[in-house]
Each structure stands twice: as structure tokens, then as C-alpha cells.
């Protein structure tokens, strides 16, 4: 039996996290079961890489002369190009400067890819995954998050970006893009309203906002991209993956030019990725923030509660 004196020395912040850390572990276990049961291959790719995908607003930490990955995307697509059909990975990613109630600079991502699938197929798979993980964590039918009750019965809401702006924003998507305030409107006006009663797939983004996504064949102004929202929190981002190396290179160069003009670190072009991209079959891929899903299932307001240590604790 431990003495009372010994108890007081314990780190109380950590002691209080016991239930959240058990939930987290059970959920990650359930994610693995779900994908293994669907014949997905679990893989690991290097977390330290020479060239992250250049994107306007995603900043990588340097690590020696290389970088810590901001996503495992490029290596996973090289596996698709080599003929792997269904792959998933649960890994750490790093993004510099991202810290808030829903952001940690080091966080855990679940990323999966499927050949011969598109973003619509991934919406259905996403429904299956989250319902499975919720069930395995003792939550059936609905989730209570803060003041919301989120109904998990199928199908979940599908809302195009255009419809969402009509419903929740004082201006249209086109006007927001023209005025350069798309991010503000999504983050402050639209996003917080999504997924409050049931999870919402926000889909069909302007093509300029889908860096690695394929454009719709019937409407090249739209990217086949969706984000999943629950309780106003952005949980996952998915694409029908672009597999046109020339177009991808053009988009990378555009982002590199933006980064240079904004005084951000310039990343080299990931040549080995571009070299194999044309041989990548039509595929869809998705990244889901594991920490945020734990927050939602655990009914926690801040991401800090669902990791043992935040950077500030170290």
C-alpha cells in the first residue's frame, strides 16, 4: 500500500489522464482491427524525409538537412504506384507553429489509401471506421460531445462547400476566394456549425484548395476533396488522388513560389515521388487526426487532455 505522502509527489495532471489514455489506446487498437479486417496492409514509412510536399500553409520542422514529415502522403503513394492496393499507417506528423485547443505541433495521424476508389467510397469507409471505433469504445448510436449529441446512424450528412457557404456564410465561395477570406469564413463561420447533430462530410472544394486532389471530370473547377467534421471540429481530409505528374509538378512549383514570396522555407521538389506518380492507379486517400477523434469520443474540449504530454509539459 502506498503511503499518503508518496501520493502527493505524483504528477496530478498525468494521473487525471488515465481514462483518456485508456480510451486512446482502445481506439487505436480498434482502428487496426478495422483495417486488418478489411485486408489493409499496415505499413511504416520514414518520418524524417528530404522533401515534404510543398504546400502554401503547412510548415515542416527541419531535422538536420532534412525535415520531419508533415504527412506520410508521398511515401504511401509511392507504395500505391508499386502495386499495393490497400495500405494504412498510424504515425506521428509534425507541423511547425500549430498549437491551439485542437492543434499540437506533434500529433498522430491515421492515413489510408485504396486503389480503384474515389472520395465518395472513402466517405462510406469513414462512416464504417468511426462507427466501429466508437462501438469498440463502448459508444453505440450516438456521441455526447460538450453540449452536442451527435447521431452516428447512417448515412451521415454530405454537404458541398457551395451549399455550406449558402447555409452558414454571409457570402458565396467565389466572393470569399475573390476577397481572400476563404480560410476565415471556413474556420470561423462555416466549420463550427458542421457535424453538430450528425457527422458532416464537407465536399467539392475549389480546385485551387486541393493541392494533391484530382479535379472533377464533369467540373474542373472543383477538386474531389472532402473533410469530415464532427462537433464543429475538422477531423479528416480526403482526396481522389491526383496522378498526373505534370499537373502535380505545376502545383508544387506554384506553392514553392508562394512560400518563397512569403519568406517561408523552400522545400526541394520530391522528385522520386513525381517520377512514379504517373504509374499510380486511380486511388483515394485520407488522413484522420487520431488525437481529435479521441477528444470527441472522450468528450474533451482540448487536445491536451488526450495525449500524455504536450510540448509545454516537457
Amino acid at each position: 500500500m502506498q503511503s499518503k505522502k508518496g501520493m502527493a509527489e505524483k504528477n496530478w495532471t498525468l494521473v487525471k489522464k488515465r481514462d483518456d489514455l485508456w480510451l486512446r489506446a482502445r481506439m487505436i487498437q480498434a482502428m487496426r482491427e478495422f483495417f486488418v479486417g478489411r485486408d489493409y496492409l499496415e505499413i511504416e514509412t520514414p518520418e524524417r524525409i528530404p522533401a515534404p510536399a510543398p504546400e502554401d500553409h503547412i510548415d515542416a520542422f527541419s531535422c538536420g538537412s532534412w525535415f520531419l514529415q508533415t504527412s506520410p502522403e508521398l511515401c504511401m503513394k509511392r507504395l500505391l504506384a508499386a502495386g499495393y492496393e490497400k495500405i494504412f499507417q498510424i504515425c506521428k506528423c509534425w507541423r511547425e507553429g500549430e498549437r491551439g485547443d485542437y492543434h499540437l505541433p506533434e500529433y498522430t495521424l491515421l492515413e489510408w489509401y485504396r486503389r480503384d476508389a474515389d472520395y465518395q467510397d472513402l466517405m462510406i469507409e469513414c462512416e464504417g471506421l468511426i462507427r466501429y471505433v466508437a462501438g469498440a469504445s463502448g459508444r453505440q448510436g450516438f456521441l455526447d460531445y460538450q453540449s452536442d449529441r451527435i447521431d452516428l446512424s447512417l448515412p451521415w450528412e454530405r454537404l458541398s462547400v457551395g451549399e455550406a457557404f449558402e447555409r452558414y456564410a454571409p457570402l458565396s465561395v467565389e466572393e470569399a476566394l475573390d476577397q481572400g477570406c476563404f480560410d476565415e469564413v471556413i474556420a470561423c463561420r462555416v466549420g463550427p456549425n458542421l457535424g453538430r447533430r450528425c457527422p458532416t462530410f464537407l465536399y467539392d472544394y475549389p480546385v485551387s484548395l486541393g493541392a494533391l486532389a484530382r479535379a472533377r471530370k464533369d467540373n474542373p473547377g472543383l477538386a474531389e476533396r472532402f473533410e469530415l467534421y464532427m462537433a464543429g471540429i475538422e477531423l479528416a481530409n480526403a482526396f481522389s488522388e491526383l496522378n498526373d505528374a505534370q499537373e502535380q509538378r505545376r502545383r508544387f512549383e506554384k506553392s514553392r513560389a508562394y512560400r518563397r514570396s512569403a519568406g517561408k522555407t523552400d522545400y526541394p521538389v520530391p522528385e522520386p515521388f513525381l517520377k512514379t506518380l504517373d504509374s499510380m492507379p486511380d486511388s483515394a486517400g485520407i488522413a484522420l487526426g487520431v488525437d481529435r477523434l479521441v477528444m470527441i469520443l472522450g468528450d474533451r474540449k482540448k487536445i491536451d487532455h488526450v495525449v500524455a504530454f504536450t510540448p509545454e509539459d516537457l
Binding site: G97, R99, G100, D183, E184, E234, N237
Partner: peptide, 14 residues
């Protein structure tokens, strides 16, 4: 204060 950032968008400080 809240830091918000759409996944692919820019960092915003509300």
C-alpha cells in the same frame, strides 16, 4: 484566444 487553422489553410488567431 484560440488558434484555428483549416487543415490546408492558413493559421488564424481568433
Amino acid at each position: 484566444f484560440n488558434f484555428v487553422k483549416p487543415g490546408k489553410g492558413q493559421a488564424l488567431y481568433r
